[in-house]
Simulated assay, not measured.
Amino acid sequence: MLGLVLLNGFNVNLQNSNVIVCKLYFYASFLFATLSPTILILASVDRLLISSQNVDTRLNSSKRLAYFSISISTVFWIVFSCHALIKVNLQEFAPFYFVCYYDPSSSYLDFVSYFAAVINVIFDILMIIMSVFALKNVRRIRSIPREKRNQIRSMTKKDFQLLRCLFVQDVIYIIFGTSICIFYVFDAITKYQNGTILEQAIRNFLYTFMTFLYSTSYSVNVFVFIIVSKAFRHELKRTIYKIIGKDLVPIREEENRQENHERDNVEINVVSTIEVPA
């Protein structure tokens, strides 16, 4: 995202000035483009496990399993993305005009296009599956009477809020991921077709626009948590108050005050409706 901002917003091409920067730029792009949705999928799996009514299934949601899964995924994508360090270089497209780009061989360009399309389709399908099953679990929980919920599940309000945040994040990624997948498929089909200058300009515009939208999905997470999660808003407010030197009432005390206030209002209404005999 930072590279796109510097390139398209300020016309700063740091990757075209140095081979090492060029390789690291594409390597980081490949790495985080695959690692971020992988972490999101693992988080969705964890929420799916903890929302289950089966006690044995909920026990699989643990920090140990989370650390292990994240470590394995990170190592895998770090190793897999090393092809960018080998195949990406400063390519001379004109005399004394170098651009950081992939190896011009058609086989590697096809690999990049099809890999980006296939991996995004896989991520989208997995997120859809996780979201559907998590929503089913939540619907089952909400269909159970409140007095029996504590005997069946162990989800708290923060768990529900985090589940909603992850669901919104999944939806955002699916929308933007699907759009970039469609473009990559179109690009792979029309790559070797000679088009007019206008068609090439439209193609370059679509590539830049789709890439920007796809990168935007990684930067909206904080806004999703602010909009969806009450606990996150409270913690953010508490942090801001702490910076400026003010105290903030903890969220539990605030909820207790609201419950007591509502209870007092109910009691007052009940008393006011009682008719006193003459």
Rank of each mutant, 00 (worst) to 15 (best):
D103T: 15
K23L: 08
R153H: 15
L85Q: 02
S73V: 00
I244Q: 13
R64Y: 10
K23A: 03
G245S: 09
R149S: 07
F111P: 00
N204K: 12
D159H: 09
Q200E: 13
P95G: 01
L24P: 00
I243D: 01
R142V: 08
S113C: 02
Y192A: 11
V138I: 13
I122C: 12
S71D: 03
F186T: 12
L42D: 03
N150G: 14
L248H: 04
L206K: 09
I119T: 06
V88L: 03
V138W: 05
F68H: 12
L206P: 04
K237C: 07
V171G: 08
V21N: 09
L59S: 05
R164V: 08
G177Q: 09
Y27Q: 07
V19L: 11
F96V: 00
Y218Q: 05
F115R: 03
R146E: 13
T38V: 05
F186M: 13
D159A: 06
P277R: 14
L65H: 09
S73I: 04
T273C: 08
E255A: 06
I141S: 06
P250R: 11
I226Q: 13
T211L: 11
T239A: 10
S44D: 04
F98P: 00
Q15T: 05
F26N: 00
Y192H: 11
I141F: 13
S272I: 04
K23S: 03
F76H: 03
F98M: 07
S52K: 01
I172N: 03
R203Y: 11
N137K: 04
F167I: 01
G177N: 02
L85V: 07
A201Y: 02
C165D: 01
A94W: 01
